[in-house]
Design a protein around this nucleic acid. Structure first.
Lengths: 211, 211
DNA sequence: CGGAAATGCGAGTATGTTGTTTATATTTTC
DNA sequence: GAAAATATAAACAACATACTCGCATTTCCG
């Protein structure tokens, strides 16, 4: 009984056709994000992901041809989420403080699900060879949204590069949130408040003496 | 908690007595920092460290009983360095902007040697079992120096927790520097300038409207 | 010198990890 | 009820790596 398993293209993953399998795939990606966030890239093993998803290792390999494609799926999902948060915060013309509050609230919420996922994705995990364009695109959009906000809330000054300001602002926010996540302090209201203060103070450009 | 029966961490298996061996040990620690920073905790192998140090693996194990003791040595050295930078920046009574400039310059310099070492040490590498007290002590001193600066430069306000402000400030600075290190942008003068701006703006407490 | 101590070497080993496959079992569809 | 889709988990093969051991080389010191 030779199983006539058609394996014409081993690099193509199987498409989930029934509802059951779609749920399985979703569970796998969710578990992957959880493992990645909790154990880091070093602890990100396919077996561990399958176990966490409550699914057999064979099932995982039925939908993801290899480890990296699974990582790519997680990355895609998370980046889409974060991008939507920034986009929503900066879409209308709001007062500076309102913008800051919504942004901070959204970012904290996004990182509360998988506290260190963002950092792991950026630092530890290997950049995807398969979709390098997608990664660059995310970075560009990410910065672009910040730059838009900076441009609209900060009066133009001589020698103040908007892009540089956007980079400093975004990395400062990320740093604070990442640090808080490491201490399980994301929910602290004091943190949220001070982060808003930081953003408002920087963008309104105070503290400039004799310059 | 009573006395935890931790087997004392053997710092060094053998004490270097001659000048040659002292140089060897130094080379090993330096190489370890380099590997940790460049390859991360996952790429931190004893063989790789020995190779980088231009030293045989056997020599390494003559002075460090195991991998973790080597990590501990790197951690000790780096933390001492960073602490001294903060201490020096905040020692005298200087104008806010001067303090910020010295702090930023020092931190950038400290991270220019091994760009991502700090982050790897905090995030990826396992917390040392042998000297958990030392680690906590570093964290405490680190925050304490920031808190001192915050207290002296920021007028007390109702409901503004000094410690929370210090934590936000320090993590924001770390975030910016870490991000810049990842892009090899640590040397950019625009970064340095904007980071100083951020610190001054936040500590001078501008941007507060109707509160 | 010259012997002893200190230092350095690096192939080898033992032990584990992990991505992936495969043969088989169960569920869904028609 | 049969074929297709989906799930299972044991097993494997390949690789990685922390650490040891026997020996070579350098330094010390009378």
């Amino acid at each position: 009984m030779s199983t006539r398993i058609a394996k014409p293209h081993p690099r193509m993953r199987k498409q989930p056709r029934q509802a059951r399998s779609r749920a399985t795939v979703e569970a796998i990606i969710e578990a992957a994000a959880h493992v990645l966030s909790g154990l880091g890239w070093a602890g990100f093993t396919t077996n561990k992901v399958a176990e966490t998803a409550g699914v057999s290792i064979g099932t995982l390999y039925q939908y993801f041809p290899d480890k990296l494609s699974l990582l790519a799926a997680v990355r895609r999902r998370h980046f889409d989420h974060v991008l939507s948060v920034i986009r929503d915060s900066a879409e209308d013309q709001k007062p500076l403080r309102t913008f800051a509050q919504e942004l901070v609230r959204g970012m904290i919420a996004a990182h509360s699900i998988h506290p260190t996922l963002h950092q792991v994705l950026l630092d530890e995990a290997p950049g995807d060879r398969g979709s390098r364009a997608a990664h660059a695109s995310f970075q560009a959009q990410y910065l672009n949204h910040y730059a838009t906000a900076v441009a609209s809330y900060r009066k133009p000054r001589k020698g103040a590069d908007t892009e540089a300001v956007a980079r400093v602002l975004s990395s400062a926010i990320e740093g604070v949130i990442h640090n808080a996540a490491r201490r399980n302090m994301l929910a602290a209201p004091e943190l949220q408040k001070q982060l808003v203060e930081l953003i408002c103070a920087y963008l309104s450009g105070a503290g400039r003496i004799g310059r």
